[in-house]
Write a protein that binds this DNA or RNA. Structure first.
Length: 545
DNA sequence: TGTTCGTTGTGGCC
DNA sequence: GGCCACAACGAACA
């Protein structure tokens, strides 16, 4: 067969060479191969306002990680005799132009379950307001489209189909349906077909942060984690070297306060961008398991974590409006407070609870925290203390995490807020004792909140209880150098439990069909209760005073 | 309809 | 480090 066809591989996630079925298919029998990435201004525009509540623009750390991943992809393509062609614009429009210009016969890109990519895949708007499906366009132009599932271990659609069209809502039922993951590709090509004539289109280099207009945004500290496939594979090898560690890995036993050497692999950001194939990761861990006497199992094991990822991808794919409370069938309807003051205190690490604030500083500086640290702050913001809507916390995480993943982030916020998957709202993480259990001396707090670095360990988790003499010796006066607690945890958590109980009862009575009016009614009632209790508390304080 | 089970709570006790 | 009471949910399955 003569090699006279051109192929285009469209990178979105899947920023890697290894286990990349779209790239492999594009390579085969092609004279020319065009590896393309389209920068979508909608995703990349910097948000000049420090950040308004609800802003979902990607933060600096994730953009940096992403650009490093593109640079590494380009470099790895060049080693194979190719290179990355970067464009800027509305992705599908750019793509259609390129398909025409280069007379492409094969269009290959990784399938993606996220609504953003689903909309890109399906509908394009051409010049005359005509709506076209990408697949329709391609078939009318005689272009073969290849869009394999390779971001996840399984095809979410298969699992949903096996379960009579409904996604499984528990991990165990997911496992039963899932079976054995698809293996990664075994062969990796040692060369790629050359890029053909590119015509007169402006092809960019991978831009720098400054070129994207992020230069003016101040950032105290950048994430210590570097993006890219090379870094991902190096990190994977380092993690897997310690076979005993891999075999005995139990997620819930990890130490959330460990930061010099994190308790987990920190491979999540690489999985998010597809710098690392989850199928390859899974297989490598299986290989370690084969060579040890015993190993842990899902859900707590290392491979169990990859299965959690697929679990959330599957549920999110099969649940309309997965990323919101309203019109989301699996989400409990709860009358969360609309309290921007508390939200901002949480977001800006000013809650007055050092354990919570240190975690929020780590989020801002590193774009990564341990899973249980995320639990602590998510519980605190929602059902544990502040009773703020999980969507608000989700937005903050979505902006600041380098590993923020649409399915996983939304799923975990519903989990932690007892809106779905997990319902035992009595179990509340203490913002004082949970961290103390792992780090009694408060080394984590001292590192991320240097203002508290000289506070004696007796008071480091509750500095407001320190006598004034101790505070002044530690050069940290509570209320001046570090805030007083925004709420009294004992009181707030009790109040949250009561509200959750009442909201749950309303959901049961209405059989899941809670109307907005009912929620408003319950919220009004909560506000009245709060007024009452504030009055009685201030009366008590007057009596005590 | 009833039973079992669920990755990761806290505080008190031994 | 393990055990218990606390107060208690819903999905899955029989």
């Amino acid at each position: 067969m003569a090699l006279n066809n051109s192929s285009l591989v469209w990178f979105r996630k899947g920023l890697r060479i290894h286990d990349n079925p779209a790239l492999e298919h594009a390579r085969k029998d092609s004279k020319h191969l065009y590896p393309v990435f389209v920068l979508d201004p909608h995703y990349l525009q910097p948000d000049p306002i420090a950040f308004s509540p609800g802003s979902s623009r990607a933060g600096l750390n994730r953009i940096k990680f992403f650009l490093e991943s593109l640079v590494d992809l380009d470099s790895n393509l060049q080693k194979l005799g190719s290179k990355l062609l970067v464009f800027k614009g509305e992705p599908v429009q750019v793509l259609i132009r390129l398909l025409k210009q280069w007379d492409v016969k094969k269009l290959c890109f990784e399938f993606d379950t996220e609504p953003y990519y689903q909309s890109l895949d399906k509908i394009i708007k051409v010049f005359d307001n005509l709506l076209l499906h990408l697949q329709d366009y391609a078939s009318s132009a005689g272009i073969e489209v290849f869009s394999p599932v390779s971001h996840t271990l399984f095809n979410p659609a298969d699992i949903i189909q096996k379960n009579a069209g409904r996604p499984p809502l528990t991990y165990q039922s997911f496992l039963k349906l899932a079976g054995t993951p698809s293996p990664p590709l075994t062969s990796t090509s040692s060369f790629l077909p050359p890029v053909g004539v590119t015509g007169d289109y402006e092809i960019l280099n991978v831009p720098t942060i400054e070129e994207l207009g992020y230069g003016d945004i101040s950032q105290e500290e950048f994430t210590p984690f570097k993006g890219g496939e090379s870094e991902a594979l190096k990190r994977l090898r380092e993690s897997l070297n310690d076979k005993e560690w891999v075999a005995s890995f139990e997620k819930p036993k990890g130490d959330p306060s460990a930061f010099l050497k994190p308790a987990t692999t920190v491979l999540s950001p690489y999985l998010k961008f597809g710098c690392l194939s989850s199928r390859y990761f899974y297989q490598c861990v299986q290989d370690v398991y084969k060579n040890v006497k015993k190993h842990t199992s899902p859900p707590v094991s290392l491979n169990g974590q990859l299965l959690w990822r697929d679990f959330y991808y599957t549920v999110s794919y099969g649940t309309p409006n997965f990323d919101q409370m309203k019109d989301n069938k699996i989400c409990k309807q709860i009358p969360w407070d609309d309290n921007d003051e508390l939200l901002i205190a949480w977001r800006e690490a000013r809650t007055g609870y050092p354990w919570i604030d240190a975690i929020m500083v780590q989020l801002r500086q590193w774009g990564w925290m341990h899973h249980l640290a995320r639990h602590s702050v998510a519980c605190f913001l929602t059902r544990g203390d502040l009773f703020v809507h999980w969507e608000k916390g989700r937005d903050v995480f979505d902006r600041l995490l380098i590993d923020s993943d649409w399915a996983i982030n939304n799923g975990n916020w519903m989990w932690l807020s007892c809106s779905s998957f997990f319902y035992q709202y009595n179990r509340i993480y203490s913002p004082i004792s949970f961290g103390k259990k792992y780090d009694p001396n408060g080394a984590y707090i001292r590192h991320f909140l240097p203002v508290l670095k000289d506070m004696p360990k007796e008071y480091i988790y509750e500095p407001w209880t320190a006598p004034i003499s101790v505070q002044s010796k530690a050069k940290c006066l509570i209320g001046r150098d570090y805030p007083k607690p925004v709420v009294d945890h004992a009181f707030a958590s009790k109040d949250c439990k009561r509200k959750m109980g009442e909201a749950y009862e309303l959901n049961r009575r209405m059989n899941g069909l809670v109307r907005e009016e009912d929620l408003k009614g319950l919220r009004r009632k909560f506000e009245e209760d709060q007024d009452q209790s504030l009055k009685s508390r201030s009366q008590k304080q007057k009596l005590i005073g």
